[in-house]
């Protein structure tokens, strides 16, 4: 059973990468546009200083790379490059409407494995530059990863249990009659929090926080910085795509073709995450850890129990 999605040939991989990149650019543009909306008098005092994505990319491409003394350049570069690569590896198993690059029977576990690889990537990006602020950023990421990862895993398990398959296409097809977000809202929210977590974004952006001079971004300059920043938006986009596929019915919807619905839902989740970033405070990793273990883990476990009972009783 292919679960209603057609696998594409490997030649389509660059197209999928471009689609993902387009999503990331939209997210970054929205973020920049919201940034330049004057929030108060202080901002209005400097008219004409609009931050655009193009300008930021051009500036970073022109900027010279700085490498601190005794940096572990190899590990640093691996950590930086792994962020966009991880986003691409996630997108490889994501059904984009009727098509998917790889229709893997263990797609859900693959997504999970790749988001765990981000642990290594962010820590290495923090370790590499041999800088205290960056290293603290790396440690912060691991601390909050320990808090968001288990809830994220249970949140991933819920749709897989309900669909009876680890194949993403199968999970999408199991939502033909009812989207999973309707009867597993807690898992959906925990999943979105996990997406923000592995994208070092919004409330979970403390590893790159301004209180530690940018954390894992502290020493990244030029093209390195561009790749890390782009990698965060790419991960956010891939994560939103998975939220759409696992909880919002994937390509299901009236009138429009499946790919359009998939794109719309992904952009909706993506925009919600970008907009919410301004409404939510950055969480302190040490505080968030206790919330993760004492609140999120039990709550997502209960959600999983409810889902399992429904599946057995059905």
């Amino acid at each position: 059973m292919t679960g209603g999605v057609t696998p594409l040939s490997a030649g389509w991989a660059p197209v999928v990468a471009l689609v993902l990149l387009a999503g990331a650019v939209v997210a970054a543009a929205l973020d920049a546009a919201l940034d330049s909306v004057p929030a108060g008098r202080a901002d209005r005092a400097r008219p004409g200083r609009r931050r655009t994505v193009t300008a930021a990319v051009a500036r970073l491409l022109r900027q010279r790379r700085r490498v601190p003394v005794a940096a572990d350049v190899l590990l640093w570069r691996i950590g930086v490059a792994a962020l966009p690569v991880a986003a691409l590896l996630m997108a490889a198993v994501l059904p984009l409407g009727r098509w998917t690059l790889v229709d893997w029977p263990v797609g859900v576990v693959w997504f999970n494995a790749v988001d765990v690889a981000v642990w290594a990537a962010v820590w290495l990006a923090g370790w590499g530059p041999n800088s205290a602020h960056a290293l603290i950023g790396g440690y912060r990421f691991l601390a909050q990863a320990l808090a968001y990862e288990l809830p994220l895993m249970f949140a991933l398990t819920a749709p897989a249990v309900a669909a009876g398959t680890l194949r993403i296409g199968g999970v999408v097809q199991a939502q033909q009659s009812l989207w999973f977000v309707v009867w597993m809202p807690v898992a959906f929210l925990a999943f979105c929090l996990g997406v923000a977590g592995f994208s070092v974004f919004g409330p979970l952006s403390a590893p790159a926080g301004s209180d530690i001079a940018g954390g894992v971004l502290a020493e990244a300059s030029g093209v390195d910085r561009l790749i890390v920043l782009a990698g965060r938006y790419l991960l956010l986009t891939a994560g939103s795509g998975f939220a759409a596929a696992l909880f919002l019915g994937g390509g299901a919807g009236p009138l429009l073709p499946a790919w359009a619905w998939m794109a719309l839902k992904t952009l909706a989740v993506l925009s919600a995450l970008v907009v919410l970033r301004r409404r939510l405070p950055v969480l302190r990793p040490d505080r968030f850890m206790e919330v993760g273990w004492l609140v999120l883990v039990p709550v997502t476990l209960l959600q999983l129990l409810v889902v399992s009972v429904v599946v057995v009783a059905r």
Partner: peptide
């Protein structure tokens, strides 16, 4: 052994990320 392979990668990367600390 797709499932076992992917889970092994998942567990080992996670474990090593923590072990490095």
């Amino acid at each position: 052994q797709d499932y076992l392979g992917v889970v092994t990668a998942l567990m080992m990367i996670m474990e090593m990320a923590i072990m490095a600390v």
